[in-house]
Computed example of a mutant assay.
Amino acid sequence: MSGSAEFARPVGASWQARALLGRYGIALVLPALLGLGGVLSPAFVSAGNLSNLLLQSAPLAIVAIGQSFVMIVRGLDLSVASMMATAAVVATSFSGADRDVPGIFAVTAVVAIAVGLLNGFLVTKRRVSPFLATLATMILLQGLRFAYTQGAPSGNVPPLLRVLGSAKLYGIPYNALVLLGLAVVLGIVLHRSAFGRRIFIVGGNPVTGRLFGIRSDLVTIACYLISSALAAVAGLILSGYVGLVDNWVGQGYELDSIVACVVGRVSLSGGRGSILGALTGAAVIVVIANEVLLLGVPIQAQMIIKGVVIVAAAALYSSRETSSG
C-alpha cells in the first residue's frame, strides 16, 4: 500500500507540473526570449529597441484580440488582413488633412460593420464554414479595393494618423496606448460581462447555449463584428506607421493573428482563451521577428524560423487538446 502511494505521488506531481507548465508556460517564454535577445545582441534590450517592439507589436496585437473572440466561438477570420488594407486605402482616399480623420473613421466603420455582418451571416445563417466564409470575404475586399484604386492606390496619410501610428509619448508609442485601452475594455467585456459568459458558453457547447436560451447566432455575429472592427483600427494604425499605402498593407496578419492566439492558449476548437493570452502570443511573434532581424538573418531563414514557430504552435495546440480530452 505504501509503495503504491509513493508511486502515485511523483506521478501526481509530474501531472501537476505539466498542467502548470501548459497553463502558464507562455508567460515564461516571453521573458526567456527577451533574455535570449539581450544575450545575442546588446542592442535588443536598449530602451529604443524595446519601445520599437511596442510600436511594431500593437497592430498585430489588436488584430489578435479580435481573432480571439472569433476563435472562442469556434471560428476563424481570414479577412482581417484584407480589412486592414481596405482601411488603409480609405485613410488615403481623402485630402490628407486632419479634418478628414472623422470621415475616415466613419467610412472605415461602415465597411468594417458590413464585413463583420457578412462574415457572421455566412457562418451562422448559411452554415458556411468559417474558413470558406472569411476567405470569400477576403477575396471580395481585395477585388473591390483593386477596382477602386485601379491597382495603384495613392494619397497621403493624415498627420494625426501618422502620430497615432508612429509617434511616442515619453518613449511609449501612442498605438500601444490605444492597444492598452482596447485590451482593458474588451478584457472586461470578455471576462467580466454577461455577454462574455455567453461567448464562452456558445464556443464551449452550442447545445448548452441553446438550452440556456442564448441566441448563439447573434453572439457569433457580434464576435465577427468585433474582429472586423479591430482589424480596421489596426489597418488605420498601420497606415500611420508605414506612412504610405498599397493594396497589401497588413499582408500575413491573418495567419500571424491565428498563430498568436494559438500560442497564447486560445483554443481552435472554441470555448477557451483570454485577451492576455492573445497579447502574449502576439508579443512572442514580434520578439522573434525582431531578434532574427537584429542578427541579420537572411529573409529565407526568417521565413523558415516563422514556419518552425507555426509548426511548434500547432503541435503545442494538438498536445493540449489531446491531454485535455
Rank of each mutant, 00 (worst) to 15 (best):
S41D: 10
L55P: 01
V89T: 13
V90E: 14
G96V: 10
G103P: 08
L76G: 05
P42E: 12
A81P: 05
N49C: 14
F105C: 13
S95W: 06
A106W: 11
Q56W: 07
L55R: 09
Q67L: 02
A81G: 03
A109G: 13
T108V: 14
A87C: 11
N52M: 15
Q67I: 11
S68A: 12
F69C: 08
D77G: 06
F69R: 10
A85L: 12
A109I: 00
N52R: 15
A88N: 10
A109V: 02
A109L: 02
D100S: 12
D77Y: 03
P42W: 01
A91I: 05
A32P: 11
V80L: 09
L60I: 07
F94H: 08
A81I: 02
A87T: 13
P102L: 09
G66L: 04
I65N: 11
V63L: 02
T108K: 08
T108H: 09
D100W: 01
L54R: 10
L76A: 04
R99M: 08
A85S: 10
V80M: 12
S79N: 13
A85M: 08
F44P: 08
A43E: 15
V107K: 11
V39P: 04
G48E: 15
L54Q: 11
S41F: 07
T108C: 12
N49G: 01
V101S: 10
S41A: 15
L36N: 00
G103L: 14
S57K: 01
G48K: 13
D100L: 03
Q56M: 09
F105N: 07
L33K: 02
F94E: 00
S82Q: 11
A47C: 09
A106Y: 03
T108W: 10
V101E: 09
Q56S: 12
G38R: 14
A97M: 11
A81T: 10
P59M: 07
S93N: 08
G48P: 07
L40C: 01
I104Q: 02
V63M: 13
L76C: 00
S41I: 07
S51N: 13
S51Q: 14
T86C: 08
S82F: 08
G38T: 02
A81D: 03
V39C: 04
A47T: 14
G35E: 02
V101F: 06
N49Q: 12
V101N: 15
L33D: 10
A85P: 14
M83H: 11
G48I: 09
F105W: 08
L78G: 05
S79E: 06
A43K: 15
S51C: 09
L33C: 04
A32G: 11
S46G: 12
L55F: 09
